[in-house]
Design a protein around this nucleic acid. Structure first.
Lengths: 206, 206
DNA sequence: GCATCTCCAATACGCTCGTATTGCTCTGCC
DNA sequence: GGCAGAGCAATACGAGCGTATTGGAGATGC
């Protein structure tokens, strides 16, 4: 057996697997979640069906990969965000990063929403959803708690409750945004308003 | 041509059409949006594929019917709600009616979420989504505005902004609820907390 | 009585799907 | 040089799909 392959079973294959996952995200974002198939993803990635199948044995694994890929992209961007500055501004930065405000974020948000909804009937997706939600909850909660400890926010602000509400607003606006019922400006203004209400800072000052 | 049929082209057929739409909702809620097909709905409704096709010519019409049916059920319940009492309590009643708190509401919420997400790739669904959202916005906005006029709420509360935030919370929590990431109690407590924050009443008193 | 129309069942066609299988190419090891 | 394994293409099979078509049962109007 190949030693290099023993240490890392996917040599150049890892790149291909990533390309396939990205292609799956593209297909779901553009054509909808029900169009995703082994063949459609293969076409999108410029590969044969066999290649796709080699990396993701079944369609459900392909779905999972698309979901995980989108979630990873979003959380990658979020953890890189600068957490310094006034709390409303920081939270605004965090939340904006997960809102469908440009083409790139929209793609990821569509996948996030579609597969969150699909999680109702697919337990594997539900587990992934739960993980992602908990991660975001931890980030927001600790950011708010820190601001309260520093005296930058009113003591009556409950970090956990505030974070839960903000994340709900975030996902709700995401849904409204990708459905085209709310324009990007409406998304940001509502998000900012929500942040002001939750933090009791009385308005949007971002 | 049949006179009765001329006045109402669907005689007993209207009932069947409704049954088919309800079956479509059941299929989407139980097995997921991608399982919906002419045949699966026909099985669910105990009819032949031809019968389903007679009432809804194509699969996309079937999708639309399922969406419209779920939206109708939800808004039917909402417009029946008693609007008297303290504003936080009234809004709590309104929002709770659209949250996936029991099996029946969960079914409708799953369909709502799945097809809202699908609206990103299907314009017909997007139109339906927009309509439903506007209806709910009007109801909440006017309820809040009325409370402000009556002096039951702080004058600094902006009805439109408050309604937008509450609806976002509503849809976000719906998504979290149907994905199984948030338990029913967490849904209601977060919803109540959001209402308190938005109305500046300082807490949940429902 | 008969034509008409609604409602529904049955069936057929071509297509795409998920999945399994097979074989080729290329790389690294001995 | 020979072998093993990874990476990928090609193909095959049965199933289910969307859709079109046909026909028949039952009600209705003349």
């Amino acid at each position: 057996m190949n030693v290099k392959a023993r240490d890392d079973p996917r040599r150049s294959g890892a790149e291909t697997a990533a390309r396939v996952a990205a292609a799956a995200v593209s297909v779901v974002a553009r054509d909808g979640f029900d169009v995703l198939s082994v063949r459609s993803v293969a076409r999108e990635a410029g590969l044969s069906g066999g290649a796709v199948q080699y990396h993701y044995v079944s369609r459900s694994q392909l779905l999972l990969a698309a979901f995980a890929n989108a979630v990873q992209s979003i959380s990658d961007r979020i953890v890189r965000i600068d957490l310094s500055g006034p709390p409303p501004l920081v939270l605004g930065r965090l939340c904006r990063e997960a809102l469908p405000l440009d083409a790139q974020r929209r793609r990821e948000c569509v996948v996030w929403a579609a597969l969150s909804a699909a999680a109702a009937a697919h337990p594997e997706l539900a587990a992934e959803h739960r993980k992602a939600l908990q991660l975001l909850t931890r980030i927001l909660t600790s950011a708010i708690a820190q601001a309260v400890r520093r005296g930058e926010l009113n003591e009556s602000v409950d970090p956990a409750a505030a974070a839960a509400v903000l994340i709900a607003v975030l996902d709700g606006l995401t849904l409204h945004g990708i459905a085209g019922s709310l324009a990007p400006e409406a998304l940001t203004s509502t998000m900012d308003a929500a942040i002001g209400m939750v933090l009791q800072t009385g308005g949007s000052d971002s």
